[in-house]
Amino acid sequence: MHPHQLTSTDRAPLGRIATSLVACALLALLSACDRPGAGPAGIAFPDDVAITQALKTDFDGNPDNASARELIATLGGAQGRLDYRIQRVIARQGAFEAQYDVSLHLSRAGAESLQQLYGNMIPKDAREKLPEQTLAAYETWLAGQAASGDKTDAAQAAALRRSLATLDECYKNAKAGDDVTLMQGLAALVSPARDGWYAEKLESSQLRLRCLPL
């Protein structure tokens, strides 16, 4: 057997890899922030500072967001942050619908983030058998998984291949300090609460994933 050829025990289930990617992407659907100031008829819209703080508290404290927080930390680095671009804000009977895009401000080179992300996607035993612990080696292994999956689960193999291509395009040449668009066309309902503002996600037919696993 070729020294670099993988045995069946080296291969992770393709479904687990693809499912993990999709789950992280879906969990990364966050909430919005708003522009300050009064609108028509004297409506007092919440300002960016108040809404951003409410969103941060919810995102950091909600156990359902654990996978999303891990993905953002991996892609953005330790000091990476999410930035919101509000496209439209609509008053909704005492609350506000915010339509927005979200981007990730990188605190390290995108290639470093990809190496960490891809390394985490490969089972430890298989990863330790690779000739090098590099981004190129990880990409080759994952591409091999997609090729193997063409015969067993073509749909998931195609999803993995598309995810790798998307992430490569978005992050491989990105530098620390760059902003990468994660999603466009999101929506959230921002409501007043006794202790400030509360934001909850809304379904949006305009949602588009850009630089996240598909």
Rank of each mutant, 00 (worst) to 15 (best):
S103W: 03
V102H: 00
I86Q: 14
L212T: 04
P123T: 06
Y84K: 11
S8V: 13
P13S: 08
L214P: 03
S67T: 11
A193W: 07
V180I: 15
A143F: 09
H2G: 06
N173R: 15
H4K: 12
A188C: 07
G76M: 05
K151V: 11
P213S: 06
D178S: 03
A174R: 04
G61Y: 08
L167N: 03
L71M: 14
E132S: 11
T52A: 11
A187C: 04
F96V: 10
R35I: 13
A68T: 05
T181M: 11
A174P: 01
G119M: 04
R210M: 13
R85Y: 09
D178C: 04
L6C: 08
D153P: 00
S163F: 05
R108M: 05
E112W: 03
A98L: 05
A78C: 05
D195T: 13
P36N: 08
F59V: 10
G119H: 03
L207S: 03
L117M: 02
L71S: 04
L71G: 02
S204T: 04
Y84Q: 12
T7M: 09
D48R: 06
D48C: 10
L142Q: 00
A44D: 14
A18K: 02
C170S: 14
E203N: 12
H4M: 13
A66P: 04
Q133E: 10
P131M: 10
L6N: 08
L114P: 04
A193H: 13
Q115E: 15
R162H: 12
A109N: 13
R81E: 08
P36E: 13
D101I: 00
C24D: 11
R92S: 14
V49Q: 15
D34Q: 10
T57W: 01
P192E: 01
A187S: 15
V49D: 14
Q5M: 14
L182N: 02
Q145N: 14
C24L: 04
L75N: 00
D179A: 15
D48H: 09
I122N: 02
E97P: 02
Y171W: 10
G94Q: 10
D83A: 13
D48G: 10
V89Y: 00
T7F: 05
Q115V: 04
A91V: 07
A199Q: 03
V180F: 03
D83W: 04
E112P: 02
A32C: 15
L130Y: 06
D179L: 14
I17G: 00
E169D: 12
T74L: 10
R92K: 13
A111G: 10
T166R: 15
A147P: 05
S205T: 15
D10H: 11
Q93Y: 08
T140I: 08
Y84P: 01
P3Y: 07
T19G: 08
G76N: 05
E139S: 10
A193S: 13
W197M: 08
L214H: 06
L135C: 10
G196P: 09
